[in-house]
């Protein structure tokens, strides 16, 4: 599904190398987790994959089902089925959440050569999905993420994911700022989307999210590289001993 080979990235504005050769393959139907200390480059990886400005790829490749992601505009990557749940969802005053979602859904349908979803159909679908995430009508009407609590923003990300039905989902610290109940809601939302045809890359600091979203593979990222990969037990090791042992071991 997602193949990353020797990906090297520096900041466009400064001479600062952030990703120093990342190798990672996420297969369809699998959940991969990336853990790692703050500043190790996890968010940068997610931004570079989704096409944010400000980074310069200095080496390596990233493909989604064989398509070269790094050549494409962000909207083209999205239309191919890439989705990033942002660590910090952006507030957009003046754009209604519903308008935003309908525009996004129809833009992606158009890119796939499909007709717009009718207003009635869209309403039906979004209401059902919003309900399972406990997102009320008011949140749908309000401007995108404006005045949303941390937990509401994260649930809104998952709603977008559910509406867009991407093939490859990247979740960047979707658990940060969530209380236990919200974490459960979000995890259930993610688990409901687990499917043989869909890959997940879950970036997190904490093992606790992985109690809810059970990963197949866990990677540890440090200083711009994947330094260790293993099974779910690797996350437990991090939880118990922190990163120090692992980093010392690979150093």
């Amino acid at each position: 599904m997602l193949e990353i080979r020797g990906l090297r990235v520096k900041l466009e504005e400064e001479d600062k190398q952030i990703l120093k050769g990342v190798d990672l393959t996420v297969e369809a139907g699998k959940v991969h987790a990336i853990m790692g200390p703050n500043g190790s480059g996890k968010s940068t990886l997610s931004y570079v994959l989704s096409g944010r400005d400000g980074y310069e790829v200095t080496g390596g490749s990233a493909t989604l089902e064989g398509a070269d992601l790094l050549e494409l505009e962000p909207e083209e990557r999205a239309a191919l089925g890439l989705f990033l749940a942002f660590q910090y969802p952006v507030e957009i005053p003046g754009v209604g959440n519903m308008t935003f979602l309908r525009t996004a859904v129809n833009a992606q349908r158009k890119a796939k050569g499909l007709e717009d979803m009718s207003a009635a159909e869209f309403l039906k679908v979004i209401r059902a999905k919003a309900k399972t995430l406990k997102i009320d009508a008011d949140m749908l009407k309000r401007p995108v993420n404006v005045g949303f609590s941390g937990g509401e923003k994260k649930r809104n990300e998952i709603l977008q994911m559910a509406m867009l039905e991407p093939k490859m989902c990247i979740l960047d610290e979707t658990d940060s700022g969530l209380d236990v109940d919200a974490m459960k809601l979000v995890s259930e939302g993610v688990n409901a989307l687990r499917d043989a045809g869909r890959g997940f890359l879950v970036i997190t600091h904490y093992q606790r999210l992985l109690d809810h979203i059970k990963p197949d593979v866990v990677h540890i990222m440090a200083d711009g590289r994947i330094v260790k990969s293993g099974g779910p037990e690797l996350a437990l090791e991090v939880e118990q001993n922190g990163y120090a042992d692992i980093l010392a071991e690979v150093a």
């Binding site: 096409g51 944010r52 962000p74 833009a107």
Partner: peptide, 12 residues
């Protein structure tokens, strides 16, 4: 905001 919208598939 522009990137957020585009990352959801909305053309520039």
């Amino acid at each position: 905001a522009l990137f957020y919208l585009r990352a959801r598939g909305v053309p520039r």
